[in-house]
C-alpha cells in the first residue's frame, strides 16, 4: 500500500510541477504590465524581449534521438531459479532501446521509447518469448556539475508474446515417462506498468538510464518489480532538428 500511494503521489506531483512550471513563466510576464509611463514602455520592451526569449527557449522541440543497449531483469526476487529456493536477482536479458526526447519546458521533457527484450532462455527453449516495452517517460531535469540528471516518472506498456511450434516431448511422470505437448499457437499478454528511474548524461551524447517498473501496482500484495539498465547514445543537434 505505501508503494502504491508513493507512486500515485509521484504522478500527481509531477503533473503539479509541470503545470506550475508553465504558470510561473506566465506570471513573470504579466508582472511587467503593472508599471506605467516610460517605465511601462521600457518594461514592455523587456516584456517583449522576455516573451521572445520565452518562446525561443521553451517552445517544445525534439532534443535528441537515442539508441540504447542494456539488460532487463524481470520480476526481481520473485522467481525461483534453483531447487533450493533461490530467487532471481539481476539477469542478463539483452534490451535494445530506441528513444527520443521532447522538451516541454526548462525543467521537463517527454521521452517516449520502445524496447525489445530478448529472453536468454530462447536459445535453449522449445518455446519462444519476445517482449516489447513501450514507455512514455516524463523527465524532471536537474543540472548538476557532472552533467544533466533526469528523474523519470515512467508509465509504460509491456507486451509479452509466447509461441511454440507444437509437437511432443517425453518427460518423467511419476515412476515412468509420459509424452507432454508443446504449445502450437502464440499468445500475447499486455501489462501496464508504472515506474521510476533516473538518467544521467555525463557527456552530451551518452547517458546511463535505470528504470524500476512496477507491475500489478493496483494490487499491493501482488506487486512485482522489473529493473532495466541501459547505456544510450544520443544524436543531439537541435539546430538541424525539427522544432
Amino acid at each position: 500500500m505505501p508503494i502504491t500511494f508513493f507512486l500515485k503521489s509521484l504522478c500527481v506531483l509531477f503533473l503539479m510541477v509541470l503545470v506550475t512550471d508553465g504558470q510561473s513563466k506566465t506570471k513573470k510576464t504579466w508582472a511587467y504590465d503593472e508599471h506605467s509611463g516610460e517605465a511601462e514602455e521600457r518594461d514592455n520592451d523587456l516584456d517583449q524581449k522576455h516573451k521572445s526569449t520565452y518562446e525561443k527557449e521553451f517552445v517544445p522541440y525534439m532534443h535528441n534521438i537515442g539508441l540504447g543497449i542494456g539488460t532487463h531483469s524481470p520480476f526481481l526476487g520473485r522467481v525461483q531459479v534453483d531447487d533450493s529456493g533461490t530467487q532471481n536477482g539481476l539477469e542478463l536479458n539483452p534490451a535494445f532501446t530506441l528513444s527520443s526526447m521532447f522538451h516541454l519546458s526548462e525543467h521537463f521533457a517527454f521521452t517516449p521509447s520502445v524496447s525489445y527484450i530478448y529472453s536468454r532462455n530462447n536459445a535453449v527453449d522449445l518455446t519462444k518469448k519476445k517482449e516489447f516495452n513501450f514507455k512514455a517517460d516524463l523527465s524532471l531535469i536537474l543540472t548538476t556539475g557532472i552533467g544533466p540528471f533526469h528523474f523519470l516518472f515512467s508509465p509504460g506498456l509491456y507486451l509479452t508474446r509466447i509461441s511454440g511450434d507444437g509437437g511432443e516431448t517425453t518427460l518423467k511422470n511419476g515412476n515412468a515417462t509420459e509424452s507432454f505437448y508443446l504449445p502450437k499457437e502464440s499468445s500475447t499478454a499486455y501489462n501496464f506498468s508504472t515506474g521510476i528511474g533516473s538518467q544521467w548524461y555525463p557527456f552530451q551524447n551518452w547517458s546511463f538510464k535505470s528504470t524500476l517498473d512496477f507491475f500489478n501496482y493496483l494490487e499491493p500484495d501482488n506487486l512485482r518489480y522489473s529493473l532495466t539498465l541501459t547505456l544510450n547514445w544520443h544524436y543531439v543537434d537541435p539546430s538541424k532538428m525539427w522544432r
Binding site: 520473485r78 522467481v79 529456493g85
Partner: peptide
C-alpha cells in the same frame, strides 16, 4: 529441496494459456 515460488516455465506456461 525447497519450493518458494514459481519458476520461469511455470510463469510462461500460465501466461500462454491465460494471457
Amino acid at each position: 529441496t525447497k519450493r518458494e515460488s514459481l519458476g520461469w516455465d511455470d510463469i510462461e506456461g500460465t501466461t500462454y494459456l491465460y494471457p
